[in-house]
Amino acid sequence: MSWIYLIIAGISEIAWAFGLKYSNGFSNVLPSIFTVLGIIFSFYLFSKAINEIPIGTAYAVFTGIGAAGTVIIGMMFLNESASLLKIVLVITLLSGIIGLKLSTKDEKHEDKGGVA
């Protein structure tokens, strides 16, 4: 379930990144509300995911999904430039995310009440 939380959190990061663009420095009310709610939602899910996924892996996957998704949507729907190099680099990023998923074993983290 933690991987599902993490994937949804990464997708939510895409949404709030675009919300930031359209909030115009938080001067447009509706996009600003959408952005803040998206940030809260994505970080809530991210915090749930890191209970079982190592933080380094989780953070790399979280930000990787957000970065790759934002680039892809920008190229497809916002007329941002789409070069062969950019496409290859996004595929490389997605390959790294998949590789991290395949090479990571979920861990149950228990609070032992002290510093390890």
Rank of each mutant, 00 (worst) to 15 (best):
F34D: 08
T35P: 06
T35Y: 13
T35L: 10
T35F: 12
V36F: 04
V36P: 07
V36Q: 09
V36I: 14
V36G: 00
L37R: 03
L37H: 14
L37D: 12
G38K: 03
G38M: 08
I39W: 14
I39E: 13
I39V: 15
I39Q: 11
I40K: 12
F41N: 05
S42L: 11
S42D: 10
F43R: 05
F43Y: 15
F46P: 08
F46R: 10
K48Y: 13
K48N: 09
K48T: 01
K48I: 07
A49C: 12
A49Q: 07
I50Q: 10
I50R: 08
N51H: 15
E52W: 05
E52Q: 14
I53Q: 09
P54G: 13
P54L: 14
I55E: 14
I55L: 15
G56N: 11
G56K: 10
T57K: 12
T57H: 13
A58V: 11
A60K: 04
A60G: 01
V61N: 03
V61D: 04
G64M: 09
G64H: 03
I65P: 02
G66V: 01
G66P: 07
A67Q: 01
A68S: 11
G69Y: 02
G69C: 01
G69H: 02
T70C: 02
V71E: 06
V71T: 02
I72P: 01
I72T: 06
I73K: 07
I73V: 03
G74K: 07
G74V: 02
G74M: 00
M75A: 04
M76I: 11
F77T: 07
L78T: 04
N79G: 08
N79H: 11
N79W: 01
E80R: 05
S81V: 00
S83W: 12
L84I: 13
K86Q: 08
I87E: 09
I87Y: 12
I87F: 06
I87A: 04
V88M: 13
V88Y: 11
V88L: 13
V88S: 05
L89R: 02
T92G: 09
T92V: 14
L93V: 08
L93N: 04
L94W: 11
L94K: 05
S95N: 06
S95F: 15
S95I: 15
